[in-house]
Each structure stands twice: as structure tokens, then as C-alpha cells.
Amino acid sequence: MFDPENPARRWHDMGGNAAGPVPTDQHDFSMWEKRVDALMIIGSAKGYFTVDGLRRVLEDMGEDAFEKMTYYERWIASVNQNLIEGGAYTTAQLAEKMAQVAARGDTYGDAAKPT
């Protein structure tokens, strides 16, 4: 949490903070999450960004994103930001493609099938 007494300390740097019990819930990774993971590995292996670039954007997304988005939602946001910065595609290409994908159907299964 942002501490006005210590504005230089960033939200992600949480070692030593008070917190509740460690949660025990566990989920199995879904296919779209595995794909995000694979895109991160491939994008960095091909030199478009580094794991530090991934972390930098995750940190800059802020604490609200950490609290309100799932792990791989944050990862795809950061992977995308890094790929645009690295020149893999343009924002205009992304905009067109996201509109096409969204128009394919109302479920992930429908939208993931290229037309």
C-alpha cells in the first residue's frame, strides 16, 4: 500500500509488510494462461524484451492491477506492452486484430478460432 511517509518505496517491494494468512487456493492453469506464458518465453527468447522488461511494466501497472487482475491478465498486459515497445507489431495492428477477435464470438473457444 502506498505510504505517504515513505513515498519512494514502491508497491511491489513488499518484503516484510504485514499481511494475512497465506492463501491455500490453487487452480489449474487454463489453456489461455499457458499461451500467455509461452508468448512471454518466446518473445523474450527472440530478443523483443527481457524478463526485467516484463517486471518493469508489471511494477509500473501499479498495485491496483495486482489486486484486481489475475496473474496472467497482468502478464499479457505486460507482454503486449513490451512487444509494442520492441517493435513486434504496432498499436494500430493490435487494435485491428483485437476488434476482429472480439467479433468472432462470445466465448474464448469461438474467438480463438481464426476465421
Binding site: 518484503g15 516484510g16 526485467d52
Partner: peptide
């Protein structure tokens, strides 16, 4: 030091 950017040295 406490710079605002990406560093790997924890505050604690």
C-alpha cells in the same frame, strides 16, 4: 538509495 525505477534490491 531509493530510486523510483526498476531495481532488484529490496527496500527492507
Amino acid at each position: 538509495l531509493m530510486p523510483p525505477g526498476h531495481v532488484r534490491t529490496p527496500a527492507y
